[in-house]
Computed example of a mutant assay.
Amino acid sequence: MNAQELKQISDWLIDGARSAASPPQMVAEFCESLVGAGLPLWRVGLFVRTLHPDLLGINFIWRPGAEVVAGSADHSFADSPEFKNSPLAIVFGEAREVRYRLDDPETKRFPFFDDMRAEGVTDYIALPLLTTAGYTHASSWSTKHGNGFSDEQLNALRSLMPPLTRLVEITNLRRTAALLLDTYVGNRAGERILAGQIRRGHADTMEAAIWLSDLRGFTALSDRLPSETVVDILNQYFDCQVHSIRTHGGEVLKFMGDGLLAVFPVTQRDGSVQQVCSRALEAARESRASVDAMHYQVGEALEHFRFGVALHVGKVLYGNIGGGNRLDFTCIGPAVNLAARLEKIAGRLHRTIVASEGFAGICAGGWSDLGEFPIAGFSKAERVYGLADEVPAS
């Protein structure tokens, strides 16, 4: 590689790899430009740690003439023999490079190199990517060239690590921000925040199906079980709902103890109000089945659980609410208040799923009229509906 080619590649990285529309495309263009400059690459890996409750990191594997393969690893991978007995464990643990010719007997201690030798790999180097925040990502480079990598080629790779690291760091920070916002405030709210909707009082009115649920008997449960057990039960209980809500187009806005507030927005991309309400009802039916099947072993006793969910549809104010520099992206309005009152009525009636007259009228069929009830804070009584196929719990 001559100095001019190396500078062009470095400048491309420093400029943000603008010709690449995605991380896999960036990895592909980067590796292909190195091959074009004379670097005999066979396999390149980029390993990026993430700040995510479920994922330890993501990786991208490039080989000549093939699509870049993107993958991920959960947090348990850090304790697996596959990782602990790999050269990358040294890179991540000690933030230093690892270089081996594959005819070196020392490589026998790494099972990964057995596969590489079978492919005809002759030389391998793993280089750390040291971020400004003190984190370490990693890259690995291998060749099948008979003489392996030359010193000039290795120095060229080393010289490209700082600009590659800055690009990876910036891209990863942007991805981490999106993932954390999605995790903690929801996908749609996260999109709005990243788009700049961050000022207090900045809110929009939207029509939505509203979901408000809670776990029956949670106060008594909390009083008689250890707090760690209660947290584990809550996580399992919310798992019974969140997947169904998101699968059917809803967004979880808030967990309030054992309570859950979600909305199913009625927008052009989500379909008609009837379609949205039907999906919300289907999510409620799925969640009912999941909670019914949920059980938890506490000592010799087997705990079973019940929950209630109220469904309503109406206008909500959706945006930034809070005090000082502590904001919450949530929804408020009379429609949300009514859903909260209906959920309490569901508990009194020993029902799992109840709906307002507005929701039941839109999502017609399969409802029983449970009567008219006064609603605290509302001038008119509200007619409440329950599913006809549901037998009230004793």
Results as ranks from 00 to 15, higher is better:
126 A>M: 09
178 A>V: 03
354 V>A: 08
337 N>Y: 13
62 W>A: 10
286 E>T: 03
312 H>C: 10
306 R>G: 15
196 G>I: 07
391 V>M: 13
288 R>E: 13
60 F>E: 06
149 F>T: 02
41 L>N: 04
319 G>F: 13
337 N>F: 10
386 G>T: 03
291 V>W: 05
313 V>M: 07
35 V>W: 09
122 T>D: 09
283 A>R: 00
369 D>P: 02
304 H>V: 11
137 H>D: 12
254 K>E: 12
20 A>C: 13
74 D>W: 12
125 I>G: 04
225 L>H: 07
268 Q>I: 06
183 T>Q: 05
352 T>M: 08
78 A>C: 05
162 P>Y: 06
281 L>W: 09
215 L>R: 00
133 A>C: 08
159 S>I: 01
253 L>C: 09
38 G>Y: 11
271 G>M: 01
91 V>Q: 01
231 V>E: 09
70 A>R: 00
355 A>I: 02
207 E>L: 13
71 G>Y: 09
330 T>N: 06
165 T>D: 09
98 V>M: 05
188 R>Q: 14
301 A>I: 11
30 F>A: 01
269 R>Q: 15
36 G>L: 14
222 S>W: 08
286 E>Q: 08
228 E>I: 12
308 G>T: 02
355 A>V: 02
202 H>E: 15
367 W>A: 08
224 R>W: 12
366 G>N: 09
113 F>G: 00
122 T>F: 06
81 P>D: 07
212 L>I: 06
59 N>C: 11
222 S>D: 08
378 F>M: 12
183 T>L: 07
77 F>V: 00
251 E>H: 04
227 S>L: 12
240 C>P: 01
309 V>T: 14
35 V>Y: 07
263 V>T: 03
13 L>G: 01
248 H>T: 03
81 P>N: 05
20 A>Y: 10
154 L>G: 03
177 A>I: 06
